[in-house]
Amino acid sequence: LKKVVALYDYMPMNANDLQLRKGDEYFILEESNLPWWRARDKNGQEGYIPSNYVTEAE
């Protein structure tokens, strides 16, 4: 899975979204639905995130 790091905080707009915290790492599960990607956080929560809020992890 592709790993990304959040560049900004993101508060979910609806139940399908995943909250982002700046500096945290996330795994990308699906990239087909631009600009929204399906992601999983370190706690196993899954949801959609804005792809322009993250960058690929080193």
Rank of each mutant, 00 (worst) to 15 (best):
E30M: 07
R40V: 10
D17R: 10
F27R: 04
Y8I: 07
R40K: 08
P50M: 09
A6S: 05
I49E: 00
P12H: 03
Y53Q: 05
Y48M: 13
Y8K: 11
Y48L: 11
D17N: 11
V54I: 07
S51M: 11
G44N: 06
F27E: 10
G44P: 00
Y53W: 07
N33L: 11
Q45A: 12
Y48S: 05
L20G: 01
K22T: 07
K3A: 05
K22R: 11
A6M: 01
N14F: 11
E46Q: 06
Q19H: 09
P35W: 15
S32K: 08
N16K: 10
N16I: 08
K3F: 06
V54D: 00
Y8R: 13
E56Q: 11
L18F: 04
Q45C: 13
D41F: 02
S51V: 10
K3Q: 06
R40W: 06
D17W: 15
Y8S: 06
E25C: 13
I28G: 00
L34T: 15
S32R: 07
V5A: 03
E46I: 10
Q19G: 10
K2V: 06
P12A: 06
A15Q: 12
N43A: 10
G23N: 05
N16V: 08
M13A: 11
V5T: 10
I28L: 09
P50R: 07
Y10V: 04
P50W: 09
Y26F: 05
R40E: 04
L20M: 08
E56W: 15
L7F: 04
N52G: 11
R40A: 06
D41I: 01
D24C: 13
L18G: 00
P12V: 04
A39D: 01
Y26T: 00
L1R: 07
Y10T: 03
L1Q: 07
E31F: 12
N33D: 14
L34R: 11
D17S: 10
Y53P: 00
Y48W: 15
A57S: 12
R21Q: 09
V5Q: 05
E30C: 11
L1C: 10
L7I: 10
R21L: 09
Y26G: 01
P12C: 05
I28H: 00
Y26A: 02
A6C: 04
Y8M: 11
V54L: 04
T55E: 10
N16P: 04
Q45Y: 11
V54Y: 02
A6P: 00
S51K: 13
Y53A: 08
D17G: 15
L34Q: 13
L18R: 00
Q19S: 09
Y26N: 00
A39H: 00
K22A: 13
E25D: 06
A6H: 00
A57P: 12
K42C: 08
P12Y: 02
P12I: 04
W36R: 12
A57D: 09
G23W: 05
M11F: 14
D41P: 00
D41V: 01
P12Q: 04
K22W: 04
L7R: 06
N52F: 11
P35L: 15
R21E: 06
V4E: 01
Y26H: 00
F27P: 00
G47H: 01
E56I: 13
I28A: 03
R38K: 14
W36M: 15
L7V: 07
L34V: 09
V4T: 03
L7S: 04
D17Q: 15
D24P: 01
A39F: 02
R21P: 00
K2F: 09
N16M: 11
T55W: 08
D9K: 02
L7N: 04
D24R: 07
R40N: 02
L34M: 12
W37T: 07
N52S: 15
G47C: 02
E30F: 09
N43Q: 10
A57T: 12
P50A: 04
M13F: 09
F27Y: 14
G47P: 00
N52L: 09
E58S: 14
F27T: 11
N43V: 07
E56T: 12
K2A: 04
A39I: 06
G47M: 02
A15N: 11
Q45E: 11
A57C: 12
V5S: 04
D41L: 02
E56G: 10
S32E: 08
